[in-house]
């Protein structure tokens, strides 16, 4: 009996995952800013090719981006970012796997703004860190817009800032994230 219940439980979870609506994007925008008050120039980059998939049934959400897709104001900064900081030859991608904490409060079939937090793991530069990110979910018909602002500690991902420029690059990067996801 217990086994039967368990099986039904798992099956129904699986079924809900299978039939749940999924939302996808390939054009999410992530920008970061690691400028400090002593930086001689603005240290910031943006990636407009963040891919993501949201399972509205389970609240699971994943994002992935190519590090080399980050664009900078200065080409040299882009080169340094890739070569010396994120080592994108070795760690080509960064991803986030998480789950919406207040899924019950979000109605994906009704337009509106919902505040939320997403808890998950962010992998960058080959190192994974647990994160809880506050943000908003805006439902607009068949689209779901996500936006969030949060900080990424470079140390969490073992991204090393040389002592020479230690006060010119922030130890925590401010990240702004926006994505418009469309129903699959």
């Amino acid at each position: 009996m217990k086994k039967l219940l368990l099986t039904i439980g798992i099956l129904s979870m699986g079924a809900s995952a299978l039939f749940a609506q999924k939302y996808m994007t390939r054009t999410g925008k992530a920008t970061f800013d690691a400028t400090t008050s002593t930086s001689p120039e603005k240290i910031a980059g943006k990636n407009n090719e963040v891919a993501g998939l949201l399972n509205a049934g389970t609240g699971e959400i994943v994002f992935q981006m190519q590090i080399k897709a980050f664009k900078f104001e200065k080409q040299l900064m882009e080169e340094h970012f890739n070569e010396k900081y994120l080592e994108s030859d070795k760690y080509t991608k960064s991803d986030f796997k998480g789950k919406i904490n207040n899924l019950a409060e979000i109605n994906f079939s009704k337009d509106g703004n919902y505040k939320t937090t997403v808890t998950g793991k962010m992998t960058m530069h080959g190192n994974t860190a647990d994160m809880t990110i506050p943000g908003t979910i805006t439902v607009e018909g068949k689209k779901v817009k996500l936006s969030a602002k949060f900080k990424v500690k470079l140390a969490d991902h073992k991204i090393v800032v040389p002592a020479l420029v230690g006060d010119k690059v922030a130890q925590e990067a401010e990240v702004t994230f926006d994505a418009e996801m469309t129903q699959q």
Binding site: T27, K29, T31, K115, S147, K149, T176
Partner: peptide
Amino acid sequence: SPKTDKDFNVNEKASSNW
């Protein structure tokens, strides 16, 4: 990104809701 490339500012607007 033809659909969403309005610009950063538009998206800033969304993020400023919270």
